[in-house]
Computed example of a mutant assay.
Amino acid sequence: MSAPFSSNRSITQGNHRRRLALLGLAALVLLTVALGAWQFSRALGKRALAAAYAQALAQPPLVWRGGHAPDEFHRVRLAGQWLPADELRLDQRIANGRVGVEIVTPFRLNDGAVVLVNRGWLPADAAVPAPAGSDVELARWPRFFELATTPPVGNLFQNIDPARYAAWRGGAEPVAYARALGAQPPFVRESGPPGLPPERHLAYAATWWGMSLIGVLLWVRFYRSTRSSGVRA
């Protein structure tokens, strides 16, 4: 009596494992479908961002002395003065495959409001040139994710936002963030909309959905093999 009982128990355990394998594979397929959809939605968002950037470039430049901030990506000439004594560095930034820092210098407008201007990337040990010109492109505040807030060391920051700068320097929060325009060696300066291009996200979406298709084919094949062996999923 013990042998048939052991055999039935082994069959039951095998069936249970097959069902779990089918469920696990189905969950992976759903995950890759969701990740592909997420990347596709990001591609659409980046296309909208590129369109907004192009529209802003089509607007004539203006002089910004204070008051309401122009729309993001608009190119302006700041009127006021640079505040190099309150300059900061963003650490661990990469340009052309090299690790360095981005130099962010505040600019006080004529009405007293402060704009933080990212003047570009430099090697960490490079001397920082004095600010030259005030033509900038208004940008979004940098987006970042932190497991824990990292306080600045001197003027060296890991990430920056208005509240973090105000807490460090004191006074009111900066009213805008901008990128400096024009060549000023040795700075390396970015241009165009921030982040990955839409085509990169579309490629990621295609990769995830390709994995989804492979997962579906594997699921069907495994399901048929369990059916042929007498197992019902």
Rank of each mutant, 00 (worst) to 15 (best):
V216F: 10
A26M: 07
G120P: 00
V99G: 01
P131D: 07
R9W: 15
V231D: 10
S191A: 10
S229Q: 15
R47D: 10
R221Q: 08
G45M: 00
I94G: 07
R164Q: 14
D86C: 07
G210A: 09
T12E: 15
V128G: 04
Y204R: 13
V117Q: 04
A203D: 06
A183N: 03
I214N: 04
W38L: 06
E102S: 09
A183R: 06
D125E: 07
A43I: 05
A48V: 05
V76A: 10
G170A: 08
P4I: 04
Q92E: 04
A50S: 11
H74P: 02
V136M: 07
D91V: 03
L202N: 05
T105Y: 05
Q55A: 06
A52S: 13
R77Y: 09
G120M: 01
N159K: 15
A233M: 03
G45A: 12
W219R: 03
N155C: 01
D111C: 09
P194D: 11
L181R: 01
L25A: 03
G24D: 12
D86W: 09
D125I: 00
L30F: 08
L196C: 00
F40S: 10
A58M: 06
S2C: 00
V63T: 14
P84F: 05
R47E: 12
S7V: 12
A34M: 03
P151E: 01
L109S: 04
A50N: 08
D86Q: 15
V220D: 09
T207F: 05
P185V: 03
R42N: 12
R143D: 02
S10F: 10
S228A: 15
L44N: 06
A69E: 11
R18S: 04
P197I: 02
T32M: 01
A27N: 01
E137T: 08
E72C: 14
Y177S: 04
D111G: 09
A26T: 06
G80A: 07
R164G: 01
L109E: 00
E190T: 05
A79P: 03
A113Q: 15
P4Q: 07
R17A: 13
